[in-house]
Amino acid sequence: MMPVVGPYVPRAMTIARATRELADVFTYSFDTPAGFAFRPGQFNMLYVHGIGEVAISISGDPAEPQRLVHTIRAVGTVTRALDHLGEGSVLGVRGPYGSAWPVEDAKGRDVMVIAGGLGLAPLRPAILQVLANRADYGRVTILYGARSPSELVFREELQRWRGRFDVRLEVIVDHASRDWFGPIGVVTKLLDGVPVEPDDAVFLCGPEIMMRFATRELEQRGVPRDAIWLSLERSMKCGVGLCGHCQLAGSFVCKDGPVYRLDRIAPYLQVREL
């Protein structure tokens, strides 16, 4: 690993593989032969030459540190610039930063993963780590909601998960035409059809509205706040707790988050514009 001088200095990395997931979502993977170790839920700051940096969750397999993977939606200046790059392009990378899904601590429990839209990307490393150590967990349930069937990401992987006998995967979409034979509705609708126990460890990621809604429905079903983890998003410039942008009350989302246990952050999420 190249030594890094000062926390603001990125390392150059070359895009080894580029995959288009959706019209505006793409995955880049980098070869990191020396091993880029990270914990599920962590993010990197990705730098595009002359444009700027953006915080993107790592979406790869933590058991394969020789390959670094990011799944990105082109939605702002830097991510749109990222979209114009391709195999062979060089980016700057700083990280990994942030807190992680408590995959180790959840051992011995039933695990429920609820993903909304591109929220599946930061959850993917956690899912892979759980499945790689399947015997250490009880029931494993994955609930995934997307806008429409054509907007499902990681389709092949979803099919592989679906094909296992030891995982329950349910997928639901907000909109569909007659050629979709799965359920239609909000992702929380899937909670009606699966066992939901107070002892479950729930990992939740998606748009903030969806996460708020999902936590309400989980609480109605008796899941306590200290059993729910979610991943928050805030504006980040430095990613290391020095610039102040990502603060949510007394918390730096880049250091204390982005993954939070709900009971620790709920009071702040409830105050408008905090």
Partner: peptide, 11 residues
């Protein structure tokens, strides 16, 4: 409640 959330098109 669910229909309203669906209407928001959050994704």
């Amino acid at each position: 409640a669910r229909a309203r959330l669906q209407h928001l098109d959050v994704y």
